[in-house]
């Protein structure tokens, strides 16, 4: 097992390099650059734009720019954001904690909801409770998260139970530690609902259909025939087999813990990476985007690696070669 992981790690290095190179080329191939917006400002002369271009190093050949960037990354320097004139690492770090907290909370809520409801509905297939939950899932699954966020905000503005967005109250800095934790969690409620409800309704359908796939398999019937209780049959025999695709999915989730959900962040006014990166993308803030591409690809590779390892543990049959 350890050997496999080490081999995967060695393969990952050229992989991440390849991803960043291709991404760099694609970003640079897109029309315009960070300075395009300045060109439409009547009060900024073309000479000033040219000088800025030089000071950002954008006048050099693209490949050279990439290798400069790579060289700096190897020295743990992600470069400077054009828009913020501040180190990319600082910018990302300043938002990462909130995004991480939100992603973690919503992943936990999503997956626990999905598994509980998914297994329950598979077990109670075609009973009224199954039909009601399946019907409700139609409604929530197709409602985009940002629309739910929007409606929650609207409802919150009519009642007074929840804050209208934000990550914490203005009084946060004068609170004791337990109060701070409670304040944070309280502000997490609406975003977590907005992020979890659509994905949980999506995921529980997958859980349900995958459980149903195995519930009638021969080995399950055999287990039933052995006289095991229905609960044990489901938990022991069906669960082990049906878990497989979800471990792979969980690997992807790991890759997205630090990507944030820009639209929900914008509506609920969260202090996350999603908005930062969306703005960077729209403004073509090169090194900030590259920072997020690098982060995303590393997390994806690691996430996939762990997912594969977990898969091999849960389902020994997958452990081929």
């Amino acid at each position: 097992m350890l050997k496999i992981i080490i081999r995967r790690l060695i393969v990952s290095i050229p992989l991440v390099l390849g991803i960043t190179l291709i991404s760099f080329l694609i970003i640079q191939a897109a029309p315009g650059d960070y300075l395009s917006a300045l060109k439409m400002n009547p009060q900024i002369s073309p000479e000033t734009v040219e000088r800025l271009r030089k000071s950002f190093g954008l006048d050099q050949p693209v490949l050279l720019q990439y290798f400069h960037w790579l060289w700096r990354v190897l020295h743990l320097d992600l470069g400077i954001s054009f828009a913020y004139r501040a180190p990319v690492a600082d910018l990302i770090a300043s938002r990462a904690f909130n995004t991480f907290l939100l992603s973690l909370a919503s992943i936990c809520v999503t997956w626990s909801l999905a598994f509980i409801i998914g297994i329950f509905t598979a077990w109670r297939k075609n009973k009224p409770e199954d039909k009601i939950l399946m019907g409700a899932s139609y409604l929530f699954m197709y409602t985009p998260g940002f629309l739910i966020a929007f409606l929650l905000l609207f409802a919150a503005s009519r009642s007074a139970y929840f804050p209208l967005g934000g990550t914490y109250s203005p009084e946060y800095f004068f609170m004791s530690v337990p109060q701070k934790i409670i304040d944070r969690l309280y502000h997490l409620v609406l975003p977590v609902i907005a992020m979890s409800v659509p994905s949980a309704s999506y995921l529980f359908r997958l859980v349900r259909s995958n459980f149903l796939e195995f519930i009638n398999e021969t080995f399950v019937t055999a287990a039933r025939a052995k006289g095991l209780s229905e609960r044990r049959v489901i938990l022991l025999h069906v669960m082990r087999n049906a878990l497989n695709p979800f471990i792979t999915l969980l690997g992807f989730e790991f890759a997205t813990v630090l990507s944030g959900a820009a639209l929900i962040e914008i509506i609920l006014n969260l202090q996350g990476l999603g908005t930062l990166l969306l703005k960077a993308v729209l403004a073509q803030d090169l090194y900030l985007i590259m920072g997020s591409v690098l982060m995303g690809s590393v997390l994806l590779v690691i996430g996939n690696m762990f997912a594969d390892a977990a898969l091999a543990v849960v389902d020994p049959r997958v452990r081929v070669e």
Partner: peptide, 14 residues
């Protein structure tokens, strides 16, 4: 549980 606890606590904080 934390959520339930936090609601009365935070109403004052607004």
């Amino acid at each position: 549980a934390l959520l339930l606890l936090s609601i009365p606590a935070c109403k004052k904080a607004g």
